[in-house]
Amino acid sequence: KELVLALYDYQEKSPREVTMKKGDILTLLNSTNKDWWKVEVNGRQGAVPAAYVKKL
């Protein structure tokens, strides 16, 4: 499985998103959308802005 690093804090704004903190390591589930990537963090799945994460 592919991992990404959170470059910034992000507070979810809808139920389809997830909150992450700078430095979090997230499991990347889907990166086909260039703006929003689906990730899993702390057992929750949701979208985060692609510009806020970097593939490891």
Rank of each mutant, 00 (worst) to 15 (best):
Gly23Phe: 04
Leu26Val: 07
Tyr10Lys: 00
Ala47Asp: 15
Thr19Tyr: 04
Leu56Gly: 03
Pro49Val: 02
Ala47Ile: 15
Ser14Val: 05
Asp9Leu: 03
Ser14Phe: 07
Trp36Ser: 03
Thr27Val: 15
Leu28His: 00
Lys54Phe: 10
Lys38Thr: 15
Lys34Pro: 14
Lys1Pro: 13
Trp37Tyr: 08
Asn33Leu: 08
Asp24Thr: 08
Ser14His: 11
Arg16Thr: 13
Lys55Arg: 13
Trp37Gln: 01
Thr32Ser: 14
Leu5Tyr: 12
Lys34Thr: 11
Asn33Thr: 07
Asp9Ser: 09
Gln11Met: 13
Leu56Ser: 03
Asn42Trp: 08
Glu12Lys: 14
Val53Gly: 01
Tyr8Pro: 01
Asn30Val: 09
Leu3Met: 12
Lys34Trp: 08
Arg44Gln: 08
Val39Tyr: 00
Lys38Pro: 00
Val4Ile: 07
Tyr10Asn: 00
Glu12Thr: 10
Lys21His: 10
Gly43Ala: 04
Lys38Gln: 15
Ala51Gly: 12
Tyr52Asp: 02
Ser31Phe: 07
Gln45Ile: 15
Asn42His: 10
Tyr10Leu: 02
Arg44Leu: 07
Leu3Cys: 13
Leu29Gln: 03
Glu12Arg: 14
Arg16Asn: 15
Val18His: 03
Asn30Lys: 07
Leu29Pro: 00
Gln11Lys: 13
Val18Ile: 14
Glu17His: 07
Trp36Lys: 02
Glu40Val: 08
Gln11Ile: 14
Trp37Gly: 00
Tyr10Ser: 01
Ala6Lys: 01
Lys55Asp: 03
Gln11Cys: 13
Pro49Arg: 05
Asn42Phe: 09
Asp24Tyr: 05
Ala51Val: 10
Leu56Thr: 06
Thr32Lys: 11
Arg44Met: 07
Leu26Tyr: 11
Lys13Tyr: 06
Lys55Ser: 08
Glu17Arg: 06
Asn30Trp: 07
Leu56Cys: 14
Glu2Asn: 11
Tyr8Ser: 08
Gln45Trp: 08
Tyr8Met: 12
Thr32Cys: 13
Tyr52Glu: 02
Lys13Phe: 06
Leu3Trp: 14
Lys54Pro: 02
Asp24Gln: 14
Tyr8Asn: 08
Val41His: 15
Ala6Glu: 01
Lys21Met: 09
Trp37Glu: 01
Thr19Asp: 03
Glu17Val: 06
Gln11Tyr: 14
Lys54Tyr: 10
Val18Asp: 01
